[in-house]
């Protein structure tokens, strides 16, 4: 299972990086979204996969009984998903606003700040 996921994660990273290298900003943002999710999957996989064993303490016990899935990476991924969601929402609005003020979503047209007095 780890091997399969490793390839999936690799594929997602490749796709994300490819999209981020495009000039169209919508694709860049999609690339960020894919990379974020690939990273979440990576945390999950790197921390070790346990099938179908939630980390609940049984009735009457005081300790977890083996085997159990590590709850920490789940918490990390959950936090990362929420942060990623917020950031993605912001990035969407940002490119929309940039599109409105520049009139294009091609990053090549967003170079007025690189030149003095907005030449070009």
């Amino acid at each position: 299972m780890e091997t399969v996921l490793a390839f999936v994660i690799g594929g997602l990273y490749a796709a994300g990086v490819f999209l981020m290298l495009r000039r169209a900003l919508a694709r860049v943002v999609l690339g960020i979204a894919i990379l974020t999710n690939a990273t979440n999957l990576l945390i999950f996989t790197a921390a070790g996969l346990t099938r179908g064993e939630p980390a609940f303490i049984d009735e009457g016990e005081t300790l977890l009984s083996e085997p159990y899935g590590d709850p920490l990476p789940q918490a990390l991924v959950l936090t990362a998903i929420v942060i990623g969601f917020g950031v993605l929402a912001f990035a969407m609005v940002l490119i929309y606003r940039a599109y409105r003020s520049v009139g294009s979503e091609d990053s090549d047209h967003m170079t007025t700040t690189e030149f003095e007095d907005g030449e070009r």
Partner: peptide, 25 residues
């Protein structure tokens, strides 16, 4: 100008956050 600057800032910093998170994982 702010929008253009913000896009570069946001995209590169998000990328670095993703790399950071990968390292954490």
């Amino acid at each position: 100008a702010q929008m253009e600057g913000a896009i570069k800032y946001v995209v590169l910093n998000l990328l670095s956050s993703i790399i950071f998170l990968t390292g954490v994982g």
